[in-house]
Design a protein around this nucleic acid. Structure first.
Lengths: 190, 190
DNA sequence: GGCAGATGGTTTCATTTGAAACCAATTTAG
DNA sequence: CTAAATTGGTTTCAAATGAAACCATCTGCC
């Protein structure tokens, strides 16, 4: 009621104000770009190394860990790859089956596994790394040095945020006209 | 042979050169950030409007189309949302079932559908738009004006590219041991 | 010691997703 | 005009995914 409810008549100005050009919406652009890049990389790894992206991420962090001679548990892998533990579990399972990763049991805690690259795993790792770097370079080469630096700052800024706080003020908006306020309740009708 | 193949001995310098800090790898950072943002937005829409992200994208472009009084086919929606036609078909089906979108048959081509927002659809659309804008603003507010502008340039630069050409030089790297060289003979490679 | 959580990791189950098969309408070739 | 090829869109099927249930171990507490 208190809402500016025009009964179907379209004021051009209001219409202009109330539509969102998806192609200029940051989260959308980010998502599309990121998905295209990921798909391209995934395709590359898949074709050349029979390696999925989750698998590669695991190998990448295990490669880092090896460089520091600091083996990793699955949980640590999960944190450092931004994947959940289910995905890590599955990726590791495939990698072990393929002989690319080795799993031992931690001495101090027999639940925890200790993951390392096998020799073959390291070999593949060392072959993928330059590919990945070349791909990244190909992307960055399209940007000016200033923009590269700005991009790095932007990513760092946004990575740090919890994003939940961002949602907070946004979430303060009232739900739409209908009185069905339980839509934000249970998983039921969803 | 030309390859620097150390038989298991680890030269610290070589090791350092051959590991990739995932947390600094652009495609990875982009993917993680984008997924976090998308998940947050999806959650918001879901809770408040019982609306999935694909559904919202469809509504968004239909809202744009309506502003121009230029209804859209499913295919056009697919292009403008960067989704494939299967996903559009499903999203549209749900939206029609929910009474948020209306489908007619094109006069000149009876295969083509003509999609428009219903009154209710428009109502929801108009409620979501400011939410989306607020969210975007909350993100952008964390960046300096210069970095905002740079981000826009960066996205525009990378959006334009096919990304396949990027893969070209990258794909020139020789595959590892196995001689399966037809893996790069994909259809669109060129 | 022993029992109630917590934690590391895997498995099960339902949902989501994409590829390919498919149907219907249209266009092109002959 | 008819047959093949194309295009718009939906459905089917198999694989990927996430949530929750699940085992095994460990920790805290009595």
């Amino acid at each position: 009621m208190a809402r500016d409810d025009d009964g179907g008549r379209e004021d051009p100005a209001a219409a202009a104000a109330s539509h969102l050009p998806l192609a200029r919406f940051l989260p959308y652009r980010l998502s599309v770009l990121s998905n295209r890049i990921s798909a391209r990389i995934a395709d590359l790894y898949e074709r050349r190394f029979d390696l999925t992206l989750p698998e590669w991420r695991v190998m990448a962090v295990l490669g880092e860990a090896a460089a520091d001679d600091r083996p990793m548990s699955a949980q640590e892998v999960a944190q450092r790859t931004a994947m959940d533990k289910v995905m890590v579990s599955r990726a590791v399972a495939r990698l072990i089956a393929a002989g690319r990763v080795d799993r031992a049991v931690a001495a101090d805690d027999r639940r925890r596994s200790v993951l390392t690259l096998t020799a073959e795993g390291r070999h593949i790792h060392d072959a993928v790394v330059p590919l990945a770097q070349a791909y990244e370079r190909a992307l960055l080469d399209r940007l000016s040095p200033r923009d590269r630096a700005a991009l790095d700052r932007v990513l760092s800024s946004l990575e740090g945020v919890d994003l939940a706080p961002l949602g907070r003020d946004v979430a303060a908006f009232p739900p739409p006209g209908d009185g069905d306020s339980d839509t934000d309740a249970g998983p039921g009708n969803g």
